[in-house]
């Protein structure tokens, strides 16, 4: 089981990963977008870190909702509202728990993905973050149903997310700023799908 403190630690770890990969994500975004994805993600999680003390002691649903609201209200761009919505929806679904297991996590992720789809009016196959989120969720659900342990479930999710990132390369973007490039977006991986794979890997590394 995962307690409140561990959730906060993972969120702080996500901030470190975004900071470390700020330039990499920004370079990816430079190629097919407007070149700020890494900067915005790092800025967003830096805001979350500023709130870390206030998060301690809150229930897990509340921690995730607060994280989501911080991302929505402080980051701007499209990654702020999209990742923010994902965290808020996950928090609402998980609710006032002080410990969560894999089923809670997968339920939260599923709600988060539905939130991203609704807010971004998007679905898979459009060269967005959903292209790593959705396959990761499906792979993890399958492993979980097969009775695998936490680490194995998360590893399957990371592998599927990374494969999902690869799969965005041949896609033509139809949503977000990469869509303005049309066919020229082909051959490049999506920065949003990539940042999700990094975040999931950070969760996996915590186990």
């Amino acid at each position: 089981m995962t307690d409140q403190k561990k959730v906060v630690d993972i969120l702080l770890g996500m901030g470190r990963v975004m900071e470390e990969n700020k330039e990499f994500l920004t370079d990816l975004d430079n190629t097919i977008g407007d070149g700020d994805h890494g900067i915005n993600m790092a800025r967003g999680f830096a805001e979350v870190e500023k709130q870390a003390e206030g998060l301690a002691g809150k229930d897990i649903g509340n921690i995730l909702k607060t994280t989501g609201m911080t991302l929505v209200s402080k980051v701007g761009g499209s990654s702020g509202p999209l990742y923010g919505t994902a965290f808020m929806k996950a928090g609402m679904t998980i609710g006032a728990k002080t410990e969560i297991g894999m089923d809670d996590f997968l339920g939260g992720l599923e709600a988060g993905i539905e939130g991203v789809k609704a807010r971004g009016k998007s679905t898979t196959g459009e060269k967005t973050m959903l292209d790593s989120m959705v396959p990761a969720l499906e792979a993890m659900k399958e492993k979980q149903a097969a009775g695998a342990d936490v680490k194995a479930v998360l590893e399957a999710g990371v592998a599927a997310a990374e494969a999902g990132v690869e799969a965005t390369k041949p896609m033509v973007a139809t949503k977000g700023r990469a869509s303005y490039l049309g066919e020229r977006s082909v051959g490049h991986q999506d920065p949003g799908a990539t940042s999700f794979a990094f975040l999931l890997k950070e969760i996996c590394n915590a186990y």
Partner: peptide, 30 residues
Amino acid sequence: TIPASGKPGFELAEDEMEVGIGIHGEPGTH
């Protein structure tokens, strides 16, 4: 060049231009 990134949004040879450009430094349509 976005200040926080420090790098130009795309690269062009001396004799090239981007057509169908947006206003966010993203590459154009061709």
